[in-house]
Design a protein around this nucleic acid. Structure first.
Lengths: 381, 381
DNA sequence: CCCCTTCAATGAAAGGTTTCAACTCGGTTG
DNA sequence: CAACCGAGTTGAAACCTTTCATTGAAGGGG
């Protein structure tokens, strides 16, 4: 294509200025298409071709075409070839809505995730996809964005779609939809959360233990005033990891007020940066000498801003993250973190879901894995 | 719930050992559920209740229930209340397959992405989701994992689902399905790729210019032997950014062999680490003094391993990344990178898609934004 | 008091697929 | 030669919703 067909914008730097260009003005682009004109739709058919048109074109019955699609072994090779050719010519595409309507369920799994920009969750998703692909199912990813309303919207949508099953790392583990889905016949497996008794399957990592490991490590290195950075409290991960932190203090015989809680609005890099400023703003006498962050994104933000503000890490403030994402080891100061078997988490969850969906003798399970501390320079100066 | 209901695994450290525990053994977990027994399905209905059962329960006709669902204003308040109560009691869930079958299309958009663990794409996705939500559509994310076959599978699936439209950052921009989808009536918008003449809409950033900016920056800082790190070549992003690098050399009057290409199998942190080892293995005389990486993940991997191998950054090897993801600024050595308006990219793409899907007078456009270099310590020692 | 209008509710058709019992047609078997 | 067999094919019913032309009832105007 030649240059004139693009809506090239002036190279004037700031994205904010680029934003002014939206909605983009029509330009020369598209003329070529208008010329192509008629070719936009499939050649022959005035509307999308269905099984009926294919049957007519191949001079067979409806049922035979369906058999070619679903049980090819029942159809003689000659007929099959004829039908397949007709499909090809007409550009036939099976209508999945009709298939699902008749069959009662689809070939789709969904994973409703808290935050796809957190590599932890995408690694979990990869594990899920592997298992799903092996069972010839496809996975749709849904981003709840740590927002209970969005999460609920997606769950309703998935229920209406009659998906095979739903994997979810919930914002709101107590939400009513988490109970209505299974009641309406859609299996649900909780990921990175523990299901209550009789509530269904779950696959998780012991977050309380993880929090305890992290803070015990800090205590062993001589820190006695520790910050817990994370939020919102609605997230079970946040509550559990903080509980673990408190348990570590208790075991060490220290009072709970040695833990300063810096609440964040979300588990993101940006919130971590904000927390750094609040941390640095504390009077020196009360300022913690170490921080345990509810996840690595927060930890990386905290680390970045601390360094920027001249707070030495780990000298002035040691930092422990959670998840041990790839970036943790690559950070300005390599980050000590609590590692979870994230890939395995996804695989196991998907296996449980498939079992629940297809095995009538399925028994709910709450599988729990064990986290592990990975010490790096952000605590071991 | 009490401890006995979990399949707690021994705290023995290595994830690899944990892996041995899969598939998880049935344990005490699930007994509680078996006791709950009957409550697994909806109370009354032997099977899921449809519009018909609701109509019967409310003593109205089928059509009236449908009206309550779709045009409530046509129904008297009294009747409506009765119907809604019946729905509530029966746990009615609209069957989306049937709705879509009748209506001919669904309320869903899909974004097929190269790699959800690259924050660049999730930021694009966020932009898409904002626009979709405003139009009362939902977005399903599909992960092609830089694999053309998986991409094709997803596209087939989406076509069968009769989704409202597809946004895609393609692995294989020339793939036939990218042409068949629009031909069969499903609008497609290319994201981060430029559509050929008459091929449809696209929203992109000028990758050739981006590559040129990056390498020009390195040349200005006195580097004369430069590595280009990235791959596979199937990705247009990789080809364009490399082409830009070559253009920069040419403009500076240097021969193209000053660019050493280190090909990677994917644009990931791990591949970046591998490239570092190959880079360091080159004989000193031919070893580049700077590297331009096709994206930030690769750059971060390269940076991390370089530091690990004792190669000073930027002293022994300057590094430029691409995308300016959040982690770039937080890296061991803050990363110089080429910034793209990623959020805006997503928003604009979604707007074009919606226009194409609903506006009969739609005209295809190839919108292109301009990238921007952000210089940091990885080049400015 | 009847006709016309308006508002509610109705019932049947349509949408594309899958499933399944029934049928056809060569070829065996007794 | 009759009865039977199995492979291949058929046609119709069923899945659940939406749409729309139609009917019924109530209210207002002449």
């Amino acid at each position: 294509m030649d240059e004139g067909e693009r809506a090239s914008l002036a190279a004037d730097g700031e994205p904010s200025q680029l934003a002014a260009a939206v909605p983009p003005q029509p330009t020369a682009a598209g003329d070529a298409d208008r010329a192509a004109g008629v070719a936009r739709r499939a050649p022959g058919a005035s509307r999308a071709a269905g099984i009926k048109e294919v049957a007519a074109a191949a001079s067979v019955s409806l049922g035979t075409v369906s058999n070619v699609l679903n049980r090819p072994h029942l159809v003689s090779p000659r007929t099959r070839a004829r039908v397949e050719q007709a499909m090809e010519e007409l550009g036939f595409v099976r209508n999945e809505s009709a298939r699902a309507l008749r069959a009662g369920s689809s070939r789709i799994l969904a994973y409703v995730m808290l935050d796809p920009s957190n590599p932890f969750f995408t690694d979990v998703a990869t594990g899920i996809e592997e298992v799903a692909a092996a069972a010839d199912l496809s996975v749709f990813l849904c981003n709840s964005g740590e927002d209970a309303a969005r999460e609920a919207r997606y769950l309703d949508l998935l229920l209406e779609q009659r998906v095979q099953g739903v994997l979810i790392t919930p914002v709101d583990a107590g939400g009513e939809r988490l109970r209505t889905l299974p009641a309406r016949g859609t299996p649900v497996v909780l990921v990175d959360r523990v299901a209550g008794a009789g509530e269904g399957c779950s696959v998780s990592v012991d977050d309380v233990l993880g929090g305890e490991l992290a803070v015990t490590h800090l205590l062993e290195r001589g820190h006695e005033r520790i910050a817990f950075v994370g939020g919102p409290d609605a997230l079970g991960q946040v509550r559990d990891r903080r509980a673990g932190a408190l348990r570590a203090l208790e075991r060490a015989g220290l009072p709970p007020d040695r833990l300063t809680v810096l609440a964040t609005g979300a588990l993101t890099v940006a919130e971590g940066r904000g927390a750094a400023e609040r941390l640095v703003g504390l009077p020196a006498a009360r300022r913690p000498t170490a921080a345990f962050c509810a996840n690595d994104l927060v930890a990386l933000g905290l680390l970045q801003r601390c360094v920027g503000l001249g707070v030495a890490v780990p000298g002035d403030c040691a930092i422990v993250g959670y998840d041990d994402i790839d970036f943790a080891a690559a950070a300005a100061v390599p980050l000590t973190s609590v590692r979870q078997p994230r890939h395995l988490l996804g695989r196991t969850a998907a296996e449980l879901l498939l079992d629940e969906a297809s095995n009538p003798a399925h028994t709910h399970q709450a599988v729990q894995f064990t986290p592990e501390l990975v010490a790096r320079a952000s605590t071991v100066g």
